[in-house]
Amino acid sequence: MLEIITADALQPLRHGFFTRKGGASSGIFQGLNCGPGSTDLSEAVDINRARVAAAMDVTTDHLQTVHQVHSPDVVTLTGPLIIRPRADAMVTATPGIALGILTADCQPVLFADPIAGVIGAAHAGWRGVKDGVLESTLDAMEALGATRANITAVIGPCISQAAYEVGPEFMESFIDDTPENARFFAGGKGDRVLFDLPAFGLTKLRAAGVGHAEWTRHCTYSDAERFFSYRRTTHLNEADYGRLISVIRL
């Protein structure tokens, strides 16, 4: 049985932040692994993606994902893609296309302007947010007729500050950009600090002028039964990790 987290703020558009429950994968990929870039059996990934497509009421070729590379690049879709382009966000005003983002600690961000009939989805890790993927997504939505004040953006399950330990040089790179970024860090053990990725994303979204922005407040690292986590996999010395999918469609 699939488990789909939804946000009232994105209603009535069909959308969902899928957990790992209800999938066909096994072993370290147990559950709904939707990442074709993983070393999971391709047949299992195909079954999982077909289940997601069915839940979103689209055919499998209309469930679109991109080859994510931690960039600020956005693709505008008017129909199904044959080859996955290298990008980290998608937008569309075409009904029947489901935009899917794969994550395993990074932020999946779903966007909607229901008045203009424009949606977007972004893969927003720290590098992508720092380099402007959220603002690029909003720009691409505006090019399709959306209005920022009418856009809702919801950040789905991602790593929380309590689980995101980084080194001092990481923090310094953020503070060198903008001294106010110090507010996204808290003290950790020794010289380590804790980074608040969802707060960073929410601040960027609100500063960009969206009408509403929120986080579902689910931590991928701390809930192994429901979510895949790259960082948790690394700490456990596992060979690979599954990818969660978050989807929105008109």
Rank of each mutant, 00 (worst) to 15 (best):
T19V: 04
A224E: 13
W215H: 08
A149Q: 12
K204H: 14
G211V: 09
K130N: 09
R231Q: 14
E135Q: 15
A112P: 09
L2R: 12
G22C: 11
H62N: 15
G211N: 11
G190K: 09
L77F: 10
R217S: 15
L32P: 08
G27F: 08
A87I: 08
A93I: 05
P168M: 09
S222L: 13
T6Q: 15
P168T: 10
A140Q: 08
C219F: 10
A186H: 10
A153G: 06
S173Q: 14
A55P: 04
Y221C: 04
A162G: 09
A207W: 04
P36A: 02
I159P: 01
V66S: 09
H235G: 07
T152M: 07
A140N: 07
W126R: 15
C219L: 07
I4Y: 11
D113M: 11
A143M: 12
A54Y: 06
Q11S: 12
S71L: 03
P157W: 01
M141P: 12
P72V: 00
R84M: 12
A104T: 06
D73K: 13
R206K: 15
Q30D: 12
C34S: 02
I82R: 15
S246G: 05
G167N: 11
L63F: 13
G117T: 11
V109H: 05
A163F: 06
P179W: 14
K204A: 15
H62P: 08
G96N: 04
V129F: 01
A186L: 13
R206Q: 14
A50Q: 15
I159N: 00
I28N: 03
N237T: 09
I4K: 14
L144I: 08
G128H: 01
F227Q: 03
L138M: 10
V154F: 07
F195S: 00
F184I: 13
R84A: 15
